[in-house]
């Protein structure tokens, strides 16, 4: 009950922050629309339009960028003091960071599920038709991972600015090598091989396989890998989060 109250409080803080709300709702839609529009001349009238491609890739990128929301929800200037104040209350420390993860995850889940549903049924983006629930699952797992990763970076670095600016690097790397902006195969065999190291690439491939091939072979490995990575992040949070360091 007490933990629910903390989650509710944290969720309220995120919800009241218009920049965070916009960046998780409107911006992904704008990105899909814009990228789809500007690249439509590169795509023919085949099975996949530019909107279908960027509908998947931009949602994955935006879902990964939930990391910024997580760092913000935890340690943004105005909320940091109040958040850290909780250490004076008789609650275990895991409740402090876990509530940030959960509240960020709830927001991300609501936002990105809505985007996928609106995208498929109102903008006719191909998110797999009847396979949409599986795409929802992958994106939600990605949101969970992003929420855990962002919170972990805060625990490690103790500062929102540091956490979010450093987190941008792996996001940028994974995205570039994961085929978010352009196909990595165009850069030769070596880069294509390197891209196998990018989790984004596997998420993209998993989504495209489900949508276009009805192939679910990657679904479980991707889901469990993201879940596993999320658990690792939570364990690191527990090991590294020292609330007393934030009191001065």
């Amino acid at each position: 009950m007490r933990f629910l109250r903390i989650v509710k409080f944290d969720f309220g803080n995120i919800f009241k922050n218009s920049t965070l709300l916009i960046s998780n709702t409107v911006i992904p839609l704008i990105l899909i629309g814009l990228m789809g529009f500007v690249t439509q001349s590169f795509f023919g009238n085949g099975i996949m339009s530019s909107y279908d491609y960027y509908g998947v890739s931009m949602v994955i990128l935006s879902a990964l960028l939930i990391i910024m929301t997580a760092t913000n929800a935890f340690m943004e200037g105005r909320v940091k003091q109040a958040n850290i104040r909780m250490i004076y209350a008789p609650i275990p420390k895991f409740e402090i960071y876990l509530s940030k993860i959960i509240s960020t995850y709830i927001l991300g889940t609501l936002a990105f599920s809505s985007i996928l549903i609106i995208g498929q049924y109102f903008f006719y983006i191909n998110y797999g038709g009847t396979n949409l629930p599986y795409i929802l699952l992958i994106v939600n797992m990605l949101v969970l991972f992003g929420s855990c990763f962002g919170t972990m970076m805060c625990c490690l670095l103790g500062d929102e600015e540091k956490a979010s600016s450093i987190s941008q690097l792996p996001v940028l790397l994974f995205s570039a090598f994961g085929g978010i902006f352009f196909s990595v195969y165009g850069l030769g065999k070596m880069v294509a091989a390197i891209s196998c190291l990018s989790p984004v690439r596997w998420i993209m491939e998993c989504a495209f396989r489900i949508i276009y091939d009805n192939d679910f072979a990657l679904l479980l490995p991707v889901t469990f890998s993201l879940l596993g990575a999320s658990i690792v992040c939570i364990v690191i949070c527990q090991l590294t989060f020292k609330p007393e360091e934030f009191t001065c």
Binding site: I47, M48, G179, Y185, G186, F208, R209, I211, Y212, D213
Partner: peptide
């Protein structure tokens, strides 16, 4: 090959 290999640019 699968349609997704077109999507991925393979």
């Amino acid at each position: 090959p699968t349609a997704s290999s077109l999507a991925m640019g393979e």
